[in-house]
């Protein structure tokens, strides 16, 4: 779809400061359509921050992020970047789904309303059609029988699967997952990972911050290892996992065993 030399997602020289803290120190990353990328790294290495800059939940301090050649969060005039207005920013975010560690379902809406709300409100999908689609996605994540309940009555794994369906309902081009299983009891992790594995098999482009090495090995094409705000190692997952080249990556894998 994209012209030969325009990458699907391009992250170039991204820096992020929180006050004086230099949290992202020059991130370069390119993602092709349909790729699944796992981001590994110690706590505090900037994984969540990187993910959040991609849909402009955090504004970058420097650098550029572009989806299909369209700059995210800014527009360019001359050699300067200007922040986008609220409406333009919201429109960009419809193309990028996000799944959070804490699910963040809307507790005052039923499961079905959680999923249909944004398509109806943001994409102006007619109510009838939005509901049909929502049921389709609920089936995909194995939650068809819970359409009319409120999220608090669901287990964590069920809530996360609904959150994934909610993301899918916006028909995003890319979904960001920030430790989607870290808040779950061990026996619930599998049900969420298998939904994600299915998504990957369907060709969804996914950036996944995770501590689940099994999942990374089985599902991801590329593994990125972050350390102190930098990408220390990046490559085909099987290479990075079986023979890490950098000290940082070797140290990270060693610390897990």
């Amino acid at each position: 779809m994209s012209a030969g030399n325009v990458p699907f997602l391009a992250i170039e020289g991204v820096h992020k400061f929180f006050g004086a803290d230099h949290i992202l120190r020059g991130i370069d990353l390119q993602v092709d359509k349909g790729e699944v990328i796992c981001i590994l790294g110690r706590s505090g290495s900037g994984k969540s921050t990187l993910l959040r800059t991609i849909n402009a939940l955090e504004p970058v301090s420097a650098g550029r992020i572009a989806l299909n050649g369209e700059l995210i969060g800014y527009h360019e005039k001359g050699d300067r970047l200007y922040p986008l207005g609220a409406v333009a920013l919201a429109r960009q975010r419809t193309k990028i789904g996000m799944v959070f560690q804490g699910f963040n379902l809307f507790p005052h809406m039923t499961v079905l309303e959680n999923i249909t709300m944004a398509p109806k409100m943001v994409l102006s999908v007619p109510a009838r059609e939005a509901e049909e689609q929502a049921r389709h996605f609920l089936e995909k994540v194995g939650m068809s029988d819970k359409a009319s309940v409120y999220p608090t009555s669901l287990s964590g794994g069920q809530q996360q699967r609904v959150a994934i369906a909610r993301s899918l309902a916006m028909k995003p081009e890319l979904i960001l997952f920030d430790e989607p299983t870290s808040a779950l009891d061990p026996e619930l992790v599998g049900e969420v990972l298998s939904v994600m594995q299915q998504l990957a098999a369907d060709g969804m482009t996914m950036l996944v911050v995770t501590h689940e090495l099994r999942f990374a090995r089985d599902v991801s094409d590329v593994t990125v290892l972050m350390h102190n705000g930098r990408i220390e190692e990046m490559g085909p997952t099987k290479d990075v996992m079986s023979a890490p080249k950098t000290k940082a990556a070797q140290g990270f894998f060693a610390s897990l065993n």
Binding site: A90, T94, G97, N104, L105, M117, A118, V122, R166, S167
Partner: peptide, 16 residues
């Protein structure tokens, strides 16, 4: 605050 971030990530403007 996660509720607001989730809403933003779904393409809702701050006022929505």
């Amino acid at each position: 605050f996660g509720q607001i971030e989730a809403a933003h990530s779904l393409g809702l403007t701050p006022s929505r």
